[in-house]
């Protein structure tokens, strides 16, 4: 298996009101090129932390282990360098940027990434053409391009906007953190369709959820069960069915 995303013994902690709290406790995970993996697990197992650590959020301190992406030490890179390298994180709760025009934000992001990848920047006309094609594909109204980034967007609109960004930035590896949005079927479907539309031998994804329902829309190559900051079980899509019937108990006991 070629090295694409490889995580070994990853440990990370967060500062919780002055006391460091260990969240990731030696996590191992590999996602090969072209595969879609799903991580499931109960609340508090560290799923969101994993996505933030991989994308480079400051608040988390990596205390051990490694993570490499396309052979590079991912943890040594700034978030924007990771984006340029092809990593994309779709946020569970997309952040609002008041007053920042969405189209302007998208174009700034696309051109920042293109610049870093040594590609020519898109001028306003070329960008508009590209973005129009995508909004049409996602059945988004042009109005969403004129509004401030995520401000006043409905849950579904926010998800569509994340998928729009993902499609425009053309990542080779996308992390989709859907930990808490499981109850919103529409949002889930939008994300799933976004991932499915990008599936190719050159695109991988890691979808994080604690609702089996997501698997109604995405057929993953592998499913991982996460608990207490580690992957405690990995297997094919059929794991989800076991989870649906019996919950996490069986896996938790086996891991104990």
């Amino acid at each position: 298996m070629s090295d694409f995303l490889k995580i070994q013994g990853l440990q990370a902690r967060i500062d919780a009101d002055g006391t460091p709290k260990d969240i990731l406790k030696g996590l191992d995970l590999e996602v090969p090129k072209g595969e879609v993996h799903v991580i499931m697990g109960p609340n508090g197992s560290g799923k969101s932390t994993l996505s933030y650590v991989l994308a480079g959020r400051d608040d988390y301190e990596v205390t051990g282990g490694s993570a490499t992406f396309k052979g590079q030490d991912l943890l040594a890179l700034e978030p924007e360098e990771r984006a340029a390298l092809g990593l994309f994180l779709a946020f569970q709760s997309p952040v609002e940027l008041p007053g920042v025009n969405n189209a302007n934000f998208l174009r700034t992001a696309v051109n920042a990434v293109r610049r870093a990848r040594g590609e020519a920047e898109l001028d306003a006309v070329a960008f508009l053409k590209a973005v129009r094609a995508e909004t049409k594909h996602l059945s988004m109204s042009d109005d969403m391009l004129k509004r401030a980034v995520n401000v006043g967007f409905s849950g579904g609109e926010k998800k569509r906007n994340e998928v729009l960004q993902m499609r425009l930035l053309q990542p080779s590896f996308a992390i989709l953190d859907e930990t808490d949005s499981g109850l919103d079927i529409d949002a889930l479907r939008i994300v799933a369709e976004g991932v499915n539309s990008l599936r190719s031998p050159d695109f991988s994804a890691l979808v994080i959820t604690h609702h089996q329902r997501l698997l109604d829309y995405i057929v993953p190559d592998r499913v991982h069960v996460m608990a207490h900051g580690r992957i405690i079980h990995s297997g094919g899509p059929d794991i989800a069915k076991t989870l649906e019937k019996q919950g996490y108990t069986q896996f938790l006991e086996a891991a104990a």
């Binding site: 994308a55 480079g56 959020r57 400051d58 608040d59 700034e78 978030p79 924007e80 990771r82 984006a83 340029a84 994309f88 994180l89 946020f91 997309p94 952040v95 609002e96 940027l97 008041p98 007053g99 920042v100 025009n101 302007n104 934000f105 700034t108 992001a109 696309v110 920042a112 990434v113 870093a116 401030a148 980034v149 960004q165 930035l169």
Partner: peptide
């Protein structure tokens, strides 16, 4: 300027400086 906003922008490939510029310009848009 919240860390959430900065991180969100940076995860989209913007340098921290560009992110601050964008957020400040948004703040002043009116």
């Amino acid at each position: 300027i919240s860390e959430d906003q900065l991180f969100y922008c940076r995860s989209r490939g913007l340098s921290e400086e560009d992110a601050v510029g964008l957020i400040v310009n948004g703040f002043c848009r009116e």
